[in-house]
Design a protein around this nucleic acid. Structure first.
Lengths: 170, 170
DNA sequence: ATCGAATATTTCGTCATCGAAGTTCGACTT
DNA sequence: AAGTCGAACTTCGATGACGAAATATTCGAT
């Protein structure tokens, strides 16, 4: 039962923020960033479990999702490596395995033969869809205490952040 | 210049959400979750770069941060593995390395000699503090388009989510 | 008191990932 | 038109992470 916990997640979170502030972080920044990672960390744990049912690692999922988001457009191994936050050399073996399972296919780019074009197979799309519907369950649970208005507001604020992300690294 | 991009991050994000919804996800859920991971993914990229300056991998950072958040309380390797989202067996070598660098120390627990207690050294605390101040820079940049009121609201909404996290897995 | 189950840590074999070097191809220069 | 530079992908050696088994200690039951 939840009442047995000595410290609630809220108190835990507040203490963590205090630690980062004491070490030199700004309060208004750390409060948001720490909360962000608390949520995604829990989500990551659940993804590992759920994807195991589908014989899918997080690395494979990131490839699957990147290709699905690209829609009809084929992607190159380099692009997939970028989108998956992984070294290009790591993508070779990962694509080998996934192609072996029939999730995707590689074909040479006719217009530029140094490139390889990767696209999802029907099985790949089916697995993507299954994974989305599975993960939507825990994601929905995660947000269950937020009203529709609050979800909308949360999305709006995060989208403001996203809009500014690409201009920062310059 | 930002105007050169064909699709803005906003449009990209909207298209991604549409893909997940088409695959069977709920719109109000996917809009939030997708945005969440967009932000943390970019942050992760920056952390890798910044921590490289301090000779720190993300795995080592998670150990450092967990010990710092624990404050005076010592943690066991198992607890650190849980908090870092890695297998307990992976923690052994990681602690070996960090102890070798003088960042932390291991000592046997007198009251239960199957346990080992890990705590930060002065050097460990110093590195933690340096890392927090470094990462606060990009984190602050990330939130630069949000007003104080908006940051507060964003933190508030995320904290609602956090408060419900522990009751879900049951 | 002793035996058995449970917990905490480490060791070991295997696989994934990384960075660097190698290979092949396209683009640009002269 | 040949040569050089750069880009894309792969191969290779080394490091890190995982799961299963081994070791050591505690707790509970007979």
């Amino acid at each position: 039962m939840a009442a047995k916990r000595r410290r609630t997640a809220q108190q835990e979170h507040a203490a963590d923020v205090a630690t980062y502030v004491a070490a030199g972080g700004e309060e208004s920044v750390q409060r948001v960033i720490t909360a962000l990672f608390s949520v995604t960390k829990k989500l990551d744990q659940w993804y590992v479990r759920q994807f195991a049912d589908l014989d899918l690692t997080q690395g494979e999922w990131s490839v699957l999702a990147a290709l699905a988001r690209a829609g009809d457009t084929c992607l190159t191994p380099s692009q997939l490596a970028d989108l998956s936050n992984v070294a290009p050399s790591s993508m070779t073996h990962r694509l080998d395995k996934m192609a072996g399972r029939g999730l995707l296919q590689r074909r040479p780019d006719e217009s530029n033969r140094t490139r390889t074009l990767v696209s999802l197979t029907t099985d790949g799309w089916a697995l993507f869809s299954a994974a989305v519907r599975e993960s939507n369950v825990v994601e929905s649970d995660t947000l269950r205490d937020l009203s529709d208005t609050e979800r909308h507001e949360l999305a709006r604020l995060l989208e403001i952040v996203i809009a500014g992300l690409d201009d920062i690294e310059a």
